[in-house]
Design a protein around this nucleic acid. Sequence first.
DNA 1: ACCTGAACACCGTTCAAGT
DNA 2: ACCTGAACACCGTTCAAGT
Lengths: 194, 194
Amino acid sequence: MPEHQRADARRNYARLLAVAEEEVAAHGAGASLEQIARTAGVGSATVRRHFPTRRALLTAVSGSRIEALSARAHELTGSGDSRDALLEWLGEVVTYCVTARGLAAALALDGAEPDPVHENSCSAALEEAGEPLLRRAAADGAVADGVTVADLITLAVGIVLATEHHPDPGARAQRLFGLAVAGLSPRSLSTQDT
Amino acid sequence: MPEHQRADARRNYARLLAVAEEEVAAHGAGASLEQIARTAGVGSATVRRHFPTRRALLTAVSGSRIEALSARAHELTGSGDSRDALLEWLGEVVTYCVTARGLAAALALDGAEPDPVHENSCSAALEEAGEPLLRRAAADGAVADGVTVADLITLAVGIVLATEHHPDPGARAQRLFGLAVAGLSPRSLSTQDT
DNA sequence: ACCTGAACACCGTTCAAGT
DNA sequence: ACCTGAACACCGTTCAAGT
């Protein structure tokens, strides 16, 4: 990305991002790039320059959600019981992924391998934001040893992906995550046998 | 499907299924139907008659794996500790899904809604096979109340989907499933507080 | 530097015409 | 009844030509 974008390039990017958000919200992670270009009133080649891969587009589209979830993590870090705070946050991650189409796909692709060109990864940002929450919960013994934020997010994303075709995805995802989390984060380690 | 297929129709089906298995193994759930038709030496319209949807094709391709896993469930139902048997089986489900491309996708699509035409669903078959394993484990108190085979399979499939782009999918999937399963299936309910 | 428009190879769907 | 071949609308990629 050049230091100084031409004014029209900036405008095109803003338009494209806005259109892409609507289009992904409507048609999911597989939304047509051609359709996005048409609606934004630009050539398909222009889409390609701003978002070289579908993954780049999904990452960009998910940006505002990631920011909101990161802010939420900061809020929750200081408040209440450490286990409750962590689980509340993860529950919201699941809810966001169910609601915002394309977000789960972006996180799944993004959490896999660091970008070839080391572009900004939305999953890395989310992991960073969740880190203090996890550390506090782990210090209180509310999480199994060795569990990472990446583990928690991957699990949440997986559950969302697996339930997205179900009749009531939100409810089903939350239920499964609740069951799984009882293992990742035992209510009290002292009552577990090893 | 007509009662009596013409000989050439039977032959085409067999050829198509074989080619589809290779092609899905090579390129995943999104394998090109056109390519399958070409390799099998039939028209693309013929593919469409035998497999009206991509989902139908994936289900058919996954058939042999589902049968193997079902047989394995029957074997394990009688043997050893009930919890170990259940977890062993689920671990194998995860392994199969990681290994056999398209299987996880088929199960995810198939577990969602019963077929519009109520065709045979591979996820329903797998759930049926796992049912006795779960019942026995539940009777021994090795599984949280209200957990269903569908829950377990959905969770396994989700973890596979979320890890399939990762560097070492098999290891990562098994690790996550292990963490989650400790919640779904506590080693001993008596040491849990409610 | 950034854009557009067009050409390209590909895809899945549909249907008329064959046996 | 089952097939083929062709036509169709669509997709993403690439690149020459414009400003």
